[in-house]
Each structure stands twice: as structure tokens, then as C-alpha cells.
Amino acid sequence: MSREPVLRVAGLSVRLGGSHILQGVTFDVAPAGVTALLGRNGAGKTTTLRAILGELPATGSVAYDGREILGRPTHRLVRDGLAYVPEDRGVFAGLTVAENLRLAERVPDPDYALVHELFPELATRAGQRAGTLSGGQQQMVAIARVLLNPNRLLLVDEPTKGLAPAVVTAVATVLARVAGRVPVLLVEQNLAVVRRLATDAVVVEAGRVAWRGAAGELLDDGEATRSLLGVGRH
């Protein structure tokens, strides 16, 4: 297996309303395992994901499997296996669970076996409107939608945000399983989850990359975690 990165982000910049949100972000995503994208609130993590996906106008370079993808329409990238689980989960509240899943099908034989194995609850709630689900259940729908199709890279934005501790553990377990099959670029605030899942870490600060390296190394360095992320053990 080659160690060629699945995604190479170089000099990625985004300007919105006259201010620079990203100012030349550069990092790689390893072809296996979880790469964590960390940083304080407003550092530019979500913007980075959305710029990679073509949801925001950006300059610089993003190479996916060696091909430049900046400027390509979002839906093409997703069809090429670049899957996205957004920050607010992006579940369609007015649609049922089954409809949310059906909408996401991109291949003739979607992998419902995997989805129902990981989230048995979704099968029993198929006819329920997604808007009436709990936050954890909605997160399951959002991840399940992505897992129906074969993917080559997952972009996951704060999957554990606002969830109860038990649900956080469940979501992390699912992500750990998924990461065994597909590389993941994960934005996450919960450092316990990062420690459990991530092999590599990238820290953005004020629209620039402030730190790159092994995730364990960052988390073990209490001073670095405090100064870069504003959190850590005291």
C-alpha cells in the first residue's frame, strides 16, 4: 500500500466579505486512518472542509488522489467518493429516516447491511420523520447516509458536538470501524475522541496551519494543547 496522501491541501485561501478566513492552509491527509483537524472556535476548520468540497470559493490547490479538484462542483466530488458529514448533521427534518437514506443512495447496491449492523435503531425508525429524532440518532442518520456508498475519503465535521457522553462513545466506536476501511479527515473538539481515533493531527489557528504531526505527540504535550487549542489537562 502506497503512503501517497489521499488529499493534499496546499496554500488554500478563502476570502468572505472582504476578510481572509483561510490564509494559505497546507496539509496532507494520510491514505489510511484518521487525520484530525483541530483548532479553536473560528480558527477555520469548517471553512477548510467546505472549501475542499467546493462549497466556498477558494484559491490554492487541493489534490485528491493526485488530481486537482478545486473549483469542481460539489456533487461531482461526492460522486467520486469524497463523502461529507457536515457540522449540523444536515439531516432533512421533513423527510423520514428511510427517505434520508434513500436520497443518499448513489450506487445500485447500497450497503444497507452495514448500516443496519452499525445502527440497528434506524431500521425500526425508518418511517419516523428525521426532525423528531434525538441529536444522537440524527448523527447516526448522517453517518449512515455516507456509509451506504463506497467512499475513498470521509470529511466529518464535529460528529460528537452536543451529544451525551454515552452517545459520544457510540459515535466514536462507529468512526473507528469506518476508519478501518476508509481514510477520514475529522474535525473534532472532544480530545478524548481525537486521542482514541486520530493518527495524525493538523492544528489551524487564525486561518493558518499552526502545527502538524502525530496526534499522540500533540495530545501528550500539555503545553502545546493548551496554547494551540486553549484546552487541556490542568
Binding site: E55, H75, P86, G90, A93, L95, E99, R102, L103, A104
Partner: peptide, 21 residues
């Protein structure tokens, strides 16, 4: 119909599921 109903709710998310809205 499904795409339209979803798109009325959230166009960007429909695109992010790989659908040319």
C-alpha cells in the same frame, strides 16, 4: 420528488450527497 422536497429544505446538503440539484 424526494430530491425536490429535500432541496427545498437544504439545497447545499442535497449537493453534498452527490446530487446535481
Amino acid at each position: 420528488g424526494l430530491v425536490i422536497r429535500a432541496g427545498v429544505e437544504n439545497r447545499a446538503m442535497v449537493r453534498a450527497l452527490g446530487i446535481d440539484v
